[in-house]
Design a binder for these strands. Structure first.
Lengths: 240, 240
DNA sequence: GACGAAACGAGAGCGCTGCTCTTGACGACG
DNA sequence: CGTCGTCAAGAGCAGCGCTCTCGTTTCGTC
């Protein structure tokens, strides 16, 4: 309906995504602090000030890349989840966890962008909230499905219960994500989520140097499997 | 014995620590990427090039700060451990875990320096290895003491065993840190260590925004307690 | 006690950065 | 056809890490 106006807007949108692509490539090579607006402009054959027509500041470019990174890891988890039969809850969990690690190893700088130290005075804008939640939605969905199918075992005995102060947060999370699950399971789910990313970050940021050297994939699987057990996802699947 | 030579060397050492202190203060305000050699020099009333007499590059200054941060968090854990009776293994564990979180919350930028994304092409020099290991030594010591006292329960049933590929790494770690503990316990200890720091990082880097808002200290305690249980540290202490 | 070497602070300067402001050209719309 | 918004370009500002040079001061040694 607006092919005329679109002519301009389309070239604009194209240029924006071209800038982001060049920036992402530069980010992958040099890391976040090495991303230079001038270098991006140079590679695009334009002058540095022209970039400011599309991104009001370097931080805004970085924010765009952060959103893309969240979306990429979110899509990776969703694909991993969808590639498993819906009733194989443990397989889905393991597949999603491995997808997170695989994506992180393949895109270390982008991973660092979203799970590393936040840049100096940077506060994540609201735009990042939705893309950042996609992995959580996937993981919570697995737990919900398992619960609905009656395949979610209760947490092992001996674990401490969720503290009473968690009740309010749990209620919020239950409404948004966790269907009918108990406070205890919701808290354990958050901890599993934290543990998975903590393990990936430790591996990626070099904390396992001289600590785990042989087979980090196997060690990661052990973490994911342990969390699955704690969450009650490893009820024996009906034999063949 | 060398007051003459010391005259120069003492003022040098003093200037070095003065530079580090100013840099640390600047780091605390602006974060790692905001640390500027010129600003440090300015605050010290000297010219920027003079700094290079003491630190050959900005990265070397950062490395010095990283080592200091590792040492600070190492000392915090050691103090927390020492403040508990030696046979109260669970108390020691909880105290050390809380000390890590407390230190991190009090020094967010220094924490980010050592547990955030590594700077661009930066590889940690060997000098950081020893200070970086102090917290691990403390945590491993608690497990060793508990085991020696016959108070370390075996891991809960149902958890996956350590993968065979971990045996070699476990052997190295056993020699260095973990006395006679089994591969399974060593791997679980690494995972507990990872989980603790992962939780602190998530809290500090804003991942719990709109997720855990009420009482993050209690949630953290729950993590630490859960890990203690998995590691077998929560055998009921002899009544009173 | 004098001398050479080493260490030092100051200053100028290189190339880079993010960002701002102005200028002139192009394209869409009334 | 004229007007107005959008655009790329260029100059320029302040800051950065880092290097080199130049006098000065301090130290260890004849």
């Amino acid at each position: 309906m607006n092919a005329s106006r679109t002519a301009r807007e389309r070239v604009r949108a194209e240029l924006i995504s071209e800038i982001k692509e060049v920036a992402r490539r530069q980010l992958a090579v040099e890391g976040a602090s090495g991303l230079s607006l001038r270098a991006v402009a140079r590679e695009l054959g334009m002058v540095s000030s022209a970039i400011y027509r599309y991104f009001p500041s370097r931080d805004d470019l970085l924010t765009a890349l952060i959103i893309e990174a969240f979306d990429a890891i979110g899509a990776a988890t969703e694909n991993a989840d969808a590639s498993c039969p819906r009733d194989r809850h443990l397989d889905r969990w393991m597949s999603v966890c491995r997808a997170i690690r695989t994506w992180a190893l393949a895109h270390p700088h982008e991973y660092a962008l979203i799970h590393g130290s936040p840049v100096p005075g940077y506060v994540a804008p609201e735009d990042t909230a939705a893309p950042a939640a996609r992995d959580g939605i996937v993981l919570a969905g697995i737990l919900r499905d398992a619960h609905e199918a009656g395949k979610l075992a209760p947490p092992p005995a001996g674990l401490p219960p969720a503290p009473p102060s968690f009740a309010a947060d749990a209620e919020q999370l239950r409404e948004a994500l966790f269907a009918p699950l108990s406070d205890d399971v919701i808290l354990l789910a958050l901890e599993g989520w934290t543990h998975i990313y903590g393990t990936v970050s430790f591996e990626l940021f070099g904390m396992y140097r001289n600590v785990i050297e042989q087979d980090r994939a196997a060690a990661f699987d052990h973490v994911a499997l342990t969390q699955a057990h704690i969450l009650g996802l490893d009820t024996p699947t009906p034999a063949a």
